[in-house]
Design a protein around this nucleic acid. Structure first.
Lengths: 188, 188
DNA sequence: CTTCAAAAGTGAAGTGACTTCAGTTATTGA
DNA sequence: TCAATAACTGAAGTCACTTCACTTTTGAAG
């Protein structure tokens, strides 16, 4: 399970992600770094880089699998809490800053918000999570395949991050406005 | 207004868009065509192509400015029809096939739905329209700046095209599920 | 009609992400 | 120990997109 091979592989992957984030923060921008430089700092070839990550953008979203897992778990393991409440709680929990220089920290967020390529990749990432969320909700409701209604809910929920346009936006207010719609429709 | 210069420019632009659509339909896919081939068929250089269109994808969405104008008009000039009804009508009108081999026709749609790059570009396009729609709704409601509630509505509406994932999806059902949420919230 | 600045168009050379491939090295399990 | 397998490699290629110095076409002012 944890042979030397897999440990080394994970280490390489991690040092690539670290090199990418580190270089981008140093240079002050995603576009100021090339994949060749990232590979160099991690001391591997560009070819190797692309066996670990499918794209340059993916280097910056190493942990997205765990976000998806947490989202699905928030639905599946919510006990007797209503679905919308569980989703609202997840959204709020997930929007809180954690550490400074690490993924999900404020300087990482800034990096993403300033780069169109990364913003868009993040949106695509949530679109992927949308599938998983729809599947989880469908199972919860006993649907064989996600119904249009289920998919619409997943879509609206996963679209919330894309609603926040800049650091000056009131993310909480926008989130709550969206949940108000989900709870009782758009007022008037 | 219609000097020779502007007519020629418009003609070049049009022949580029035509060449792009024509080639992609012939080859059966967006990825099966290169910008060099498109430029060749339109009998201009690649450099010229990129003075008319900012990206390869944009070649396929020549008319997106007029879509935005129509969307804003659907809100502003709707008479005494309720806002959500006007938006629903616009969405349905806009999804109706027009001609066969032209933009908005079924074979064009199929082309877009089968290409991740084009689907994503279309989604980005709607995200741009989201701003205009939010502004129009804000004006309609007498808001100085779009409120969170207004922005959430615009966001959910403009997100509908992104909800359709592939050519096999029932676009109408997904649209209606979204409007059901907008009207009275997500059912349970 | 001439002149001239701006706009449209051009070809060539480059950049950078991403792929492909044939081959080397390291790890593993039998 | 040995063979299968996986990680890794460098080089060469593809393609979207940019930049630049240049020519041609156009519109309009003098």
């Amino acid at each position: 399970m944890t042979g030397r091979r897999e440990r080394k592989k994970a280490a390489t992957r991690q040092s690539l992600a670290d090199a990418a984030l580190g270089l981008a923060l140093e240079r002050g921008g995603y576009d100021q770094v090339t994949v060749a430089e990232i590979a160099d700092r991690a001391d591997v070839s560009v070819t190797t880089l692309f066996t670990h990550f499918p794209s340059k953008e993916a280097l910056f979203f190493d942990q997205d699998a765990s976000v998806e897992a947490a989202l699905v778990a928030a639905v599946r393991d919510r006990g007797d809490i209503p679905l919308l409440d569980a989703l609202a709680a997840f959204a709020e929990r997930n929007s809180r800053p954690v550490h400074q220089e690490s993924p999900r920290g404020p300087s990482f967020r800034r990096l993403v918000e300033e780069s169109p390529a990364l913003r868009e990749y993040a949106a695509r990432m949530w679109a992927r999570h949308e599938q998983a969320l729809a599947a989880a909700i469908a199972e919860d409701r006993g649907e064989a395949a996600p119904s249009p209604s289920t998919r619409a809910l997943a879509h609206v929920f996963c679209g919330i991050p894309g609603l926040v346009q800049g650091p000056d936006d009131d993310a909480a207010a926008l989130r709550e406005a969206t949940f108000a719609i989900l709870r009782s429709g758009w007022p008037l």
